[in-house]
Structure formats: structure tokens, C-alpha cells
């Protein structure tokens, strides 16, 4: 599904790291690396930002840069670190926004769209707070809604940029559990960046680690934490 071949991730400040050969099909994939390693830059590159990489990134065998925004929106959805909303939408109304790529000029919400939103509310158990005002929700509930919105967008790939950065321990675990359930129930590919190593072995299939200019592909859940600490030159606690 998502393939990288001789990709060099870079910014205005210079090269960050390279990916020799990598293919991601499905599962829950964590992206780790130090501050400034290039995690967010990689996510933006996957979204087709051509100025941030050299080489070939393909999605379903098509160059990522060749997709029109409206077509890419049906293949990749995004969840940012901290959701910001300008308006007094309810949780459900934020979920509705996930149908935008499928709507006509007047952005009419069809009966099908409503069914899809109801499905996701039921699947992710969002009914407890989906009718409350979004800005009144806790950070954890907001992030659940934003993941729901990505699910409503109905894409095979979901990218999350440090989704648990502002969440407490309980909400973080709920978020990881939720992402695992989505992968198990739908067979989607979820790629999320994080600095937390505790949850990886329990929930993730793969860890991509940016270190020393390379992207390492860690595939053995049992040794995720040890491998990460070793790569960073740290003694595991």
C-alpha cells in the first residue's frame, strides 16, 4: 500500500534521514525519534509535500505527489497533536466534517453520510459525548472525536502526529486501545508518531525508529523497548 524507495527526508535546514526500502500494508505502526528527528516531516511527506523529500513514495502504486488533494483525502486522513476548532460544533458535527471529501459543492450531508457517522460513533463508542459541544470535551474525548472523524473519512491510511502528547496516562491507554481495535476490526494502516515507549509492545505491530540518519524498521514487539533504548544509547530502566 504505502511504499518508500530511496527516500531522503529533508527540510530547509538540510537532510534529516533516509529510507532505503520500506513497505507498509496494514497494522498499527509507531514512528519514533528524538525531537527534531523528522517525524512530522515524514508525515507531511506522506501527505504529498514534495519539498520535503527526494525519492519515491507511492500509495497504491501511484506517486504520492501526483494525487490531487481531493483524491488523496479519500486515501489518507490525518489527526493532529492538538485539535483546534473555530466554532461551536458538537462532537457529532466535527465527525460530519470527515465526509467533506465525498460531498458536492453545497456540502450536503446525505443519508449515507449520516449512516457512516452513526456507524463510527457505535464502533468507537463515542455516543457518551458526541452530542456535547466539542470545546467543552476533555483533551482525551476531543482526540477520540478527531480519530472518529478520520474514521468517518473512510481512508485506508490514518496518520496521527503525536496524538497522545497532551493526554494523561489513562487517556493515552484508551487511545492506544482504540487504535488497536480499529486496526483489528477494519484492517487499516495506522501510522502514529510518539515519544512513549511503554505502550508499544502491547499494542503495536511495527516501530519505525529514526536514528543516526536512518529509518530502522523494528518488527519484534517483544524487544521494541530494548531495541529503542539500545539505539538511543540508553540503559533501560
Amino acid at each position: 500500500m504505502l511504499k518508500f524507495k530511496n527516500v531522503h527526508i529533508k527540510t530547509d535546514g538540510g537532510p534529516l534521514f533516509q529510507i532505503q526500502d520500506l513497505e507498509l500494508k496494514d497494522g498499527l505502526v509507531a514512528l519514533m525519534g528524538r525531537n527534531g528527528a523528522g517525524k512530522s516531516t515524514l508525515i507531511k511527506s506522506i501527505l504529498g509535500n514534495k519539498s520535503l523529500f527526494e525519492g519515491t513514495i507511492t500509495l497504491d502504486n501511484k506517486n504520492i505527489g501526483d494525487f490531487a488533494a481531493k483524491d488523496l483525502a479519500k486515501l489518507i486522513s490525518v489527526v493532529a497533536t492538538k485539535p483546534t476548532l473555530f466554532g461551536n460544533h458538537s462532537g457529532r458535527e466535527v465527525l460530519n466534517l470527515g465526509r467533506l471529501p465525498y460531498q458536492n459543492l453545497m456540502a450536503k450531508l446525505t443519508a449515507e453520510d449520516k449512516v457512516k457517522v452513526d456507524e463510527i460513533i457505535a464502533l468507537l463508542n463515542l455516543g457518551k459525548f458526541s452530542d456535547r459541544r466539542f470545546t467543552d470535551l476533555s483533551d482525551g474525548e476531543k482526540q477520540m472525536i478527531m480519530i472518529g472523524r478520520a474514521m468517518v473519512q473512510d481512508t485506508q491510511l490514518i496518520l496521527l502526529d503525536e496524538p497522545s502528547a497532551f493526554l494523561d496516562l489513562v487517556n493515552r491507554h484508551q487511545l492506544m486501545k482504540l487504535m488497536r481495535e480499529i486496526v483489528d476490526k477494519t484492517g487499516k494502516l495506522i501510522l502514529f508518531s510518539t515519544h512513549q515507549t511503554d505502550d508499544l509492545e502491547k499494542y503495536c505491530d511495527t516501530v519505525l525508529l529514526i536514528e543516526k540518519g536512518q529509518l530502522l524498521n523494528l518488527k519484534n514487539p517483544a524487544t521494541f523497548k530494548a531495541d529503542i533504548y539500545k539505539s538511543f544509547g540508553l540503559d533501560e530502566v
Binding site: A69, K70, A73, K74, A80, V94, P101, L105, A107
Partner: peptide, 24 residues
């Protein structure tokens, strides 16, 4: 009226609206 969809998406910010298929 060509801005209806973009404005609906822009309430979430430019990055989100771009990922919703809006040509920024």
C-alpha cells in the same frame, strides 16, 4: 458558494482542511 466546502473544513485549521481535500 465555491467557498462553502473550504469554509466548512477551515474551521479545523488549514492543515486539517487540506487533508480533507481542500486546495488551500
Amino acid at each position: 458558494f465555491f467557498l462553502i466546502k473550504p469554509l466548512n473544513g477551515l474551521v479545523l485549521g488549514q492543515d486539517y482542511s487540506n487533508s480533507l481535500g481542500i486546495h488551500i
